[in-house]
C-alpha cells in the first residue's frame, strides 16, 4: 500500500526540500544487498515455478512414469533423499548459528558453525550425486522417461544454486581470512542464511513433488486446470 501511496503523489505541487528530503530520510535503510537478494529469490522462484508448471503438464501424458507410488519405483523408499534433506537442514541451522555468533563477535562458534554449514552443504551435493549414480545403476537414465528427466533437471538446477551459494559464502568469509573482524561477517552471513533457508524450503517442495504418486500429480494437475 505504501507503494500505492507513493505513486499517488503529485510531484508538480511539491517543491522544496521539506517534502523530498524528508521522504528519503524516512526510508527504511534496508541494506541494498538484502533488497537484491529478495529480487534474486523472486527470480529463482519464477524459474522453479515455470519448470513445475511444465512438470505438471507433462505428468499427464501417458508415457510419464512417476518415480514413486509403486513398490518397484526407486523413490517409493526415499530414505537416501531423507538423509540428504537432513544434511541440508543441518547446514541451514549451522549457517544461522554462524550468522548469530558473528553478530555477537564470537569467533570460535562462528568458525565451527561455518565449517559445519559448508561441510554439510557439500555433503548434500555429494549425496545428490550418489542418488543420481544409484538411479543410473538401476537403469533410470535422463532420457528413459520424462519423470527421470525432471528429477535430474530439478536436482541439477537446485544443486547449481547451492553451489553458487557456497561460492558466495567463500567470498563472505574471505574478509575474515584477510584479517577482518568476525563481527564484519554478520551482514553477509545473514544474507547467506536467508539464501540457505530458501534453498532448504525449495528442496522440501521439490522432494515432496518428486516423490509423489501419479494420483497426486493428477489431482494437482486437475486443480490447476491441466
Amino acid at each position: 500500500m505504501k507503494f500505492l501511496e507513493k505513486i499517488s503523489e503529485k510531484p508538480w505541487q511539491q517543491i522544496g526540500p521539506a517534502d523530498g528530503a524528508a521522504l528519503i530520510e524516512r526510508m527504511p535503510q534496508t541494506p541494498p544487498a538484502r533488497v537484491a537478494l529478495r529480487f534474486f529469490l523472486a527470480v529463482v522462484s519464477v524459474l522453479f515455478l515455470l519448470i513445475t508448471i511444465t512438470f505438471l503438464s507433462r505428468s499427464q501424458v501417458a508415457d510419464f512414469q512417476a518415480l514413486a507410488g509403486a513398490p518397484w519405483q526407486p523413490l517409493t523408499d526415499p530414505s537416501r533423499l531423507w538423509v540428504n534433506t537432513g544434511l541440508l537442514l543441518l547446514s541451514s541451522i549451522a549457517i544461522q548459528v554462524a550468522a548469530y555468533s558473528a553478530v555477537r563477535d564470537r569467533s570460535a562458534p562462528t568458525a565451527w558453525a561455518l565449517g559445519i554449514a559448508t561441510f554439510t552443504a557439500a555433503l548434500f551435493l555429494v549425496g545428490q550425486l550418489m542418488v543420481w549414480r544409484d538411479l543410473v545403476a538401476l537403469g533410470y537414465f535422463v532420457s528413459s522417461n520424462p519423470a527421470n528427466s525432471y528429477f535430474y533437471l530439478y536436482t541439477a538446477i537446485h544443486g547449481v544454486h547451492l553451489l553458487g551459494g557456497l561460492i558466495a559464502l567463500t567470498l563472505v568469509t574471505r574478509k575474515v581470512l584477510a584479517g577482518g573482524a568476525i563481527r564484519s561477517l554478520g551482514p553477509g552471513l545473514s544474507l547467506c542464511a536467508t539464501y540457505w533457508h530458501y534453498l532448504f524450503a525449495l528442496w522440501l517442495a521439490l522432494f515432496a513433488l518428486l516423490t509423489s504418486s501419479p494420483e497426486t500429480y493428477r489431482l494437482i494437475a486437475q486443480l490447476c486446470g491441466f
Binding site: 507513493k6 523530498g20 528530503a21 521522504l23 528519503i24 530520510e25 541494498p32 533488497v35 529480487f39
Partner: peptide
C-alpha cells in the same frame, strides 16, 4: 538496476520525482 533505484536515490529524489 532495481536495487540502485530503490535504495540509492539522493536526498529529495522521491519515486514520483
Amino acid at each position: 538496476y532495481v536495487t540502485t533505484v530503490l535504495q540509492a536515490r539522493t536526498r529529495g529524489m522521491t519515486l514520483m520525482r
